[in-house]
Every structure is written in C-alpha cells, then in structure tokens.
Simulated scan of single mutants.
Amino acid sequence: MNNLSYLLETCPNHIKKDFLNISFDTFDKILIQNEDANFVYIIKKGKAKVYSLTSTGIKYLERIYSEYELFGELEVFINKPILNYVEALEPCEVIKIPKDCFLEWIKYDSNFSLYINIQLSHKLYTTSINSKANIVYPLKHRLIFFLWRFLDEHNLNAIHKDLLVEGIGSNIRSVNRIIKELVSDNIIDYNKGFIKVKDMNKLINIVFSYNYNDNTIELLNKN
C-alpha cells in the first residue's frame, strides 16, 4: 500500500472532515503560479504536471504527479505564493486539504510529519541535481535523457513534442532540430507531434555514454 494512502486512511476524522473531494478535466489548472497558497492537494486518481512559466513564455516541466502523491505543501509551510502551475494531464480526482487542517495533521501525526519531510527532502535534492545537469550537459544530451527517463517511468512508448519541449525548458526550434537528427539516425519515429523510440537499447547506450555519475543517474531516474 502506498504510504500516503495509508496515512490518509488513518487520518483522524476530526481533521479530515473538512477535506474536499474535487474533480479536474484534462488541461484544467489545479494550482496557478503566484496565487496565494491556501490548500494542499493529494491526487487520488489521474496524473498532473508541474511546470513553471518564464517571463519569456517558456514552460519548464518540473515533474509529474501520479496517484497518491501530494503537492502544495512547500508554499503552505512558508506562507509564500504558489511557485509553479499544476495542470491535469488527464481527468483527475483530487483531495483538497485546507491549510489549517494540513498543519494540524502534521502536528497530530508524527508518521505523517516524517513522510512529508522525506518527500520534501527528495524534491529539493532532485531539483538540485536537475539544475546541475541543465548547466553541465548540452541540450541534445538532456533531451535524450528526458525522453528515456519519461517513457520508462510512465511505461509509455510515445511522448508528444510539446511535453518534451517543456521537459527540457527549451524552444521549439532547437527541439525540432534535434528531433530531425534522431530521426535521421534511425533512433526515433516522429508523426503528427508524437515521438516514438524505435530502438530503446540504442537510446539507453547513448544515455550512459554521457558520463553522468551514478548518483546523478539514480536520482534523475527517480525524479
């Protein structure tokens, strides 16, 4: 059983009586960058993407949340505006937890408090690793790494180009150039905006030829 699923099930009724069950359609914004942080969210069903939007209009994909993952806690803890957009990738069922209920749950349940601290530490650590990778490695390397990691993590065989552009925080022209190179090298197929890997073993060999250290590969693969 997912740890958060169990903690939610054992949350005292006097705390969770004010939890709200809400639904979002695909492309609905669950959180909006720079708005006030008044709630924490748990996804019960579906997937949502977390991304930031730069002043130049470039989207940068931070991560994707799946069932029984929690978000919004960072801003609630420090009483700061929402840092990133969270958008439904598919129809989602979400538990919306008022700020005061979330903080009371933290104080009441030491196991829940420990869980939140571990999750926050993991997010901050992997964000730091990603920042270093974005500085050190060329765009083509980052694109191939993201493609491999995303398809493997979500058990997919294709990804839309728009999500790939957001995943590496680049512009469409640069991504199109790299896609053409990978098609020419017979590594991927590209059709109507969707990218499908033709030879995953070849892609993996390219990834491990980048000389990422073991810690970087392990952490980025879990992000």
Results as ranks from 00 to 15, higher is better:
Ile30Leu: 08
Leu31Gln: 12
Asn34Ala: 14
Glu35Ala: 06
Ala37Asn: 03
Asn38Tyr: 06
Ile43Lys: 09
Lys47Ala: 15
Lys47Val: 05
Thr54Pro: 06
Thr56His: 12
Arg63Leu: 00
Ile64Val: 14
Tyr65Arg: 08
Tyr68Gln: 12
Glu69Thr: 09
Gly72Phe: 07
Glu73Trp: 06
Leu74Met: 14
Leu74Trp: 00
Leu74His: 07
Leu74Pro: 13
Glu75Pro: 13
Ile78Glu: 14
Lys80Phe: 00
Lys80Gly: 08
Ile82Arg: 08
Leu83Met: 10
Tyr85His: 12
Val86Leu: 10
Glu90His: 08
Cys92Trp: 04
Val94Phe: 02
Lys96Trp: 05
Ile97Leu: 09
Asp100Ile: 12
Cys101Glu: 15
Phe112Glu: 03
Phe112Val: 02
Tyr115Met: 01
Ile116Tyr: 00
Ile118Met: 07
Leu120Tyr: 01
Leu120Val: 09
Ser121Asn: 10
His122Lys: 13
Thr126Ser: 10
Ser128Phe: 07
Asn130Glu: 14
Asn130Phe: 11
Ala133Ser: 07
Asn134His: 07
Pro138Ser: 02
Lys140Met: 11
Ile144Val: 11
Phe145Asn: 12
Phe146Lys: 02
Arg149Asp: 15
Phe150Asp: 13
Leu151Phe: 06
Asp152Tyr: 04
Asp152Asn: 09
Glu153Arg: 05
Leu156Phe: 13
Ala158Asp: 14
His160Ala: 10
His160Trp: 07
His160Glu: 12
Lys161Ile: 06
Asp162Met: 06
Val165Arg: 01
Val165Pro: 00
Glu166Trp: 03
Ile168Trp: 00
